[in-house]
Design a protein around this nucleic acid. Sequence first.
RNA 1: CGGGGAGUGGCGCAGUUUGGUAGCGCGCGCGGUUUGGGACCGCGAGGUCGCAGGUUCAAAUCCUGUCUCCCCGACCA
Length: 419
Amino acid sequence: MRSSQLFTKTRKTIPADETARNAQLLIKAGYVHKMMAGVYAYMPLGKRVLDNIAAIIRDEMNAIGGQEVQMTALQPKELWEKTDRWDDKKVDNWFKTRLANGVELGVGLSHEEPVVDSLRPFVDSYRDLPLYVYQIQPKFRNELRAKSGLLRGREFIMKDMYSFARTQEQHMELYERVAAAYLRVFERLGIGESTYRTYADGGYFTEKFSDEFQTVSPIGEDTIYVDENKRIAINKEIYTDETLAKLGISKGDLVEKRSVEVGNIFPLESKYSDALDLYYTDETGEQQSIIMGCYGIGVSRLVGMIAEHFADEHGLVWPENIAPFRVYLIRLESNEQIIRTADALYENLQSAGIEVLYDDRDARPGEKFADADLLGIPHRVVVSAKTVEQGVFEHKLRTESAKSMRNMESLKNVLTTGA
RNA sequence: CGGGGAGUGGCGCAGUUUGGUAGCGCGCGCGGUUUGGGACCGCGAGGUCGCAGGUUCAAAUCCUGUCUCCCCGACCA
């Protein structure tokens, strides 16, 4: 992609009414456009980051046997009445609307009911289980107050998966398999080291704990207690002597930290399947309840979380796996030879499968370097009179200040293998 | 939903106390000089001052209502 054709621009100032650092940076760099409080549109660079994160999640969900679907945003009231979640007293952040004929509808804030309902024509026998179904799409929640930029919106992108098991034992197997997949997701996103599986409240219909995935960060709104050796944590909301004893965790090993909840998995028992008449027939011909689990990852929240987590005083710093481009190619001056050299490098890298944002604008050096930093693309390559003269390219990592001069082979090497 | 703050060209702001027909910086367009860390000069385009009503000869400015945004709290992936 050429910068001259990218319709977004960076800006020097940020909207005065945006105080969340993640939204400030993403707006300043042109990754997102704020439509209204808690509602952000993704511009090309932001969309690429969002898609890159989604692709990693999708890959890991598929790897454990997840089957991707797409549920609807418009949902019938009747479905939610069956599980007693339609009443505003039960769920207070619904967006509700009406058909032209007056029939009430809900705008999807979660999809347990729709997913269960959509499985009814297909799941009848023990042979049809176990099963993982997931989707990646927007959720709509009428929060009283949106805040923290992309971390808490009224419309946000979520990956939600649901597991369906024959037995409690089978459910636990499925549950643990997802927990392991989640750790791989966060590892690939570049936040593996600071993300902990965290014991949390299991909700009102189960005695069990749920598991959150919390990324330690000063921008976090949650408080957790981390056991670094065991690589686990416990949420402050259940931090009592009694639960510590039950979990076999020693108070002395715990350190208090601020964190962002990036994922949450919990057992649903058969609450939704029973309520919506989804049963299976076992080997003996008896009808049995289906044990469900629910597994969420806040995809758009991760965009904001990662943006803010890694940013420095110059701007964004994307982990390699999710950056919108791998290389930011700067053409410093605009004489014919430099243009020819930079154009050729651009074509060359692209045909090698390396994604390049090519700053071919007729702008001054300072502006290009500042934009390179602000946009946070991992590798910066400069073509200038100096480099052309020596027949090399200048390479620099966003995370480091050292620059190196490299020939084409060496450059390609560092861009693909990091060496 | 309770408390606080704010709405003036695309963005950041001044002007409101003391009514007199809207200004600055950035950005944008044109011309020129520049070119390794956000250059400079000249010319230019762009705003019914959130919206609605009212007071007045005259309203960005005063009054009433209303919408929106932000912060703190409660709630929440």
